[in-house]
């Protein structure tokens, strides 16, 4: 028998190799994303500081690609955390009303503090996300005991209810157009001066990584968590807070991107297993690559116009989700 090194009993080389391959794919996808656009760019000119290429590159292309990568990673990570906290692989911000809660929060921000800057809106969205998805997560565990696909159905219903409320308020106060335009996940508005809020995600990723081990433990159930001396409620609240901030940030920066937070964690789980700390880099890479590629498709499919990437992600994601459901049903 091959003696496995005692210090790293989990095949480290294979993992490092797989991860570097993924990072490489991400780099390739990102560089394609950087070079494709209505205005073709002569690469050698971007380094001249006063050229048109340079301007285009730093005002539009780089912000867009950075936003794509960070959003993709952020959404997948919030998906995987929410799955662990609820112990249900079909729960994600898309299917538990988190997206809609954030929307409602932003609406209230617009309504009551119309002059407020982005951070205030973010705080509103985060508060709504945290409270509403908290309510959903804990009330649902009392209604439906076992790990079923019923829970996301309730989640989607909850989301629609919140959405209806948002629309009602929006229509009453005549800001519905404003909202809708904003909410469709679209990266064409990620421009210099507007996209910087997405950098909030980077410190959040670090937090997620630090708590990742505890999130996996929480995923093994309340009793198990208590038995190994982890404060269950505290970790659940931290997790909910982290996902609320991440989801709200991406919504403020680009609008709602559905399904990526649901599908990517499941794909990672199938390929690499469910140890979050080990797989967080994988989750982030898969999410980022998927979003960059979907955005590329959206930009190329009716070139020189573009389809919002949320639509591409939505239709592809729904398809994959359907396959997952059928497989689970068997």
């Amino acid at each position: 028998m091959i003696q496995i090194s005692k210090k790293c009993p989990f095949y480290p080389y294979k993992r490092v190799l797989a991860l570097s391959l993924l990072v490489f794919c991400l780099l390739v996808a990102s560089s394609i994303s950087l070079t494709i656009g209505v205005e073709s760019i002569a690469l050698e000119k971007i380094f001249y500081s006063d050229s048109k290429e340079n301007e285009l590159f730093f005002i539009s292309r780089i912000p867009r690609t950075v936003t794509l990568v960070l959003t993709g990673a952020g959404l997948s990570i919030s998906g995987v955390i929410l799955q662990r906290l609820t112990q249900n692989k079909f729960i994600s911000p898309t299917t538990s009303g988190t997206l809609d809660a954030a929307k409602l929060g932003i609406l209230c921000g617009l309504l009551f503090l119309p002059e407020a800057a982005l951070p205030t809106k973010l705080i509103c969205a985060v508060l709504f996300c945290f409270v509403l998805s908290g309510i959903f997560t804990f009330s649902i565990s009392h209604i439906v005991k076992r790990n079923t696909i019923l829970i996301p159905v309730f989640g989607v219903m909850f989301g629609y209810t919140l959405n209806a409320l948002t629309n009602l308020i929006g229509v009453q106060f005549n800001i519905i157009q404003n909202m809708e335009g904003w909410m469709v996940g679209n990266f064409s508005k990620s421009l210099k001066g507007q996209y910087e809020i997405i950098y909030i995600l980077i410190p959040l990723f670090t937090c997620c990584y630090l708590y990742a081990y505890k999130f996996t433990i929480v995923g093994l159930g309340r009793d198990f968590t208590k038995n190994v001396g982890v404060n269950y409620r505290l970790i659940v609240n931290i997790g909910l807070m982290l996902t609320a901030v991440m989801v709200s940030t991406t919504i403020l920066a680009v609008g709602s991107i559905p399904f990526i937070d649901l599908v990517i964690p499941n794909v990672v789980s199938m390929i690499h297993g469910d140890n979050i700390r080990r797989n967080l880099p994988f989750t982030a890479c898969y999410g980022a690559i998927t979003l960059v590629v979907c955005d590329l498709i959206g930009r190329l499919i009716i070139f020189p116009y573009e389809i919002p990437s949320s639509m591409i992600v939505g239709s592809l994601g729904a398809f994959v989700f359907l396959i997952m459901l059928i497989k689970k049903g068997r």
Binding site: P9, F10, Y213, T216, I217, F224, M270, D274, N275
Partner: peptide, 24 residues
């Protein structure tokens, strides 16, 4: 404490799961 029913639906490796016992 080891409960009677432990249906963990997580895809974890044997060593990883045992390692959780060392958490305290």
């Amino acid at each position: 404490f080891l409960k009677q029913h432990n249906n963990f639906e997580l895809k974890l490796r044997v060593t990883e799961l045992i390692a959780f016992g060392r958490f305290p």
